[in-house]
Simulated assay, not measured.
Amino acid sequence: MARTLAGIDIGNGSIRAAEIADSGGRKTPVLTHYAEMTLPEGAVVGGEVREPNTVAAAVRSLWTRGGFTTRHVVLGIGGERVLARDFTVRRAPLAQIRESLQFEARDVLPMAIADAVLDFYPKSEGVSEQGPVVTGLLIAAPKDVVLGNVRAVQAAGLTAADVDLIPFALTRALVTRAGVAGTVAVVDIGAETTTTLVVRDGVVQFVRIVHTGGNAVTGEILKELDSDPATAESIKRELGLRLTDAETADGRQAVEVIANVVRGQLAAIRNTIAYYQNGHADEPVTRVLLTGGGAHLKGLATALGELTRLPVEHVDAFSAVKLGHRLERAGLNGDARHMAVAVGLALGTAA
């Protein structure tokens, strides 16, 4: 019988899950189940579970709604408190490197080793004055954040089989499985965070997570236009950055309010790509892959392309998986634009 796993993406305003069947020798994994639902405000903040009972109840409802068959899940960890930085260690088997991190990384982290969950993601090998070395990304997540998410799904009756970094899940779903070669930037604009990562031939080279996203735009509309949340969200979706779509003075003012926020967000993305480019002139980023709910703001892709002087394209996880018969018949129980993280998490340990 095929083994199945589900990836769970617990965000600030919603929770999403995707179930992937064991490939069974097939080239393309099969997405058998997908569902999403909203979370009450304050249940999750900055990627951290603040109300575990609320989140557990939502997970139980999601499992029923989506008809999931597995209770073994892979959790995604992200947010501004999760660190990913370049780190070089003496060459050794990966298991040995990971065991040594509690000693090797003690002096480079802004948190106590005892309070962190550590991992190492190798990128390349080389030779230093001390001998052979491995360079990679040192990952550090606050232990309370990881355990909070794990306990929430356990309270829902699920088993956390693994915990994975959200940028790695995005890479799997949008780059590696999709067969994207060369050096690309992947930009995921969520409700509260924007994640920018540079990937070269399927290997993550650089990660930056910034605490800003679609909700920052909505919040500025609320403040500047004295609007209510539903109206502010509607204005954001309908107008975006397109001044030509604004037929009234109020509409033009709204576009300017939106643009003031988005300019800062796009500048942060451009600066992240430029920072990488400055140190890797021989490996230039050739295009930007855009995903996440906030990425679909009207005019955003065009503005980002003009700012970075790179081709920008919207991508989703459908290039990494094919739909199972159940989803082909009934359709997705949710928005496909938001599914990349959940799918990538499930792909991480799908055989």
Rank of each mutant, 00 (worst) to 15 (best):
W63K: 03
A43S: 14
D86S: 14
A155M: 08
A105D: 02
R287F: 00
N53F: 08
E48I: 11
A340Q: 01
G305P: 00
V255M: 01
G126V: 12
E36P: 09
T88D: 09
A156F: 06
E104C: 06
E125C: 05
G219F: 04
K223C: 06
K123T: 01
N278M: 03
M37I: 12
I97E: 10
E41L: 08
A140M: 00
D9Y: 13
R98Y: 15
E48V: 15
V261R: 11
L138Q: 11
T4V: 03
G131I: 01
R81T: 15
R329C: 05
I209A: 09
E129A: 13
G213R: 13
E129D: 15
I235Q: 02
F68W: 00
D107C: 15
L94H: 07
V89N: 03
R26V: 07
S128V: 05
L118P: 14
G202H: 06
D22S: 10
F318V: 09
T349F: 06
Y275R: 13
G264W: 05
Q205E: 13
T272P: 02
D228N: 11
V184E: 00
A232Q: 01
V285T: 01
V312H: 03
V175M: 01
P229Y: 12
M37N: 09
G79P: 15
E129G: 12
I97H: 08
T349R: 04
Q205L: 04
V150S: 06
S23Y: 00
H72K: 06
E238I: 11
E224G: 04
D228R: 08
N149G: 15
G279Y: 07
E19S: 06
L297M: 13
S319A: 14
N260R: 14
L197G: 10
D282W: 12
S234V: 04
P40V: 09
L332R: 02
E247P: 05
S23W: 08
A246V: 00
N215V: 14
V146Y: 01
G179S: 10
G182C: 02
Q102G: 11
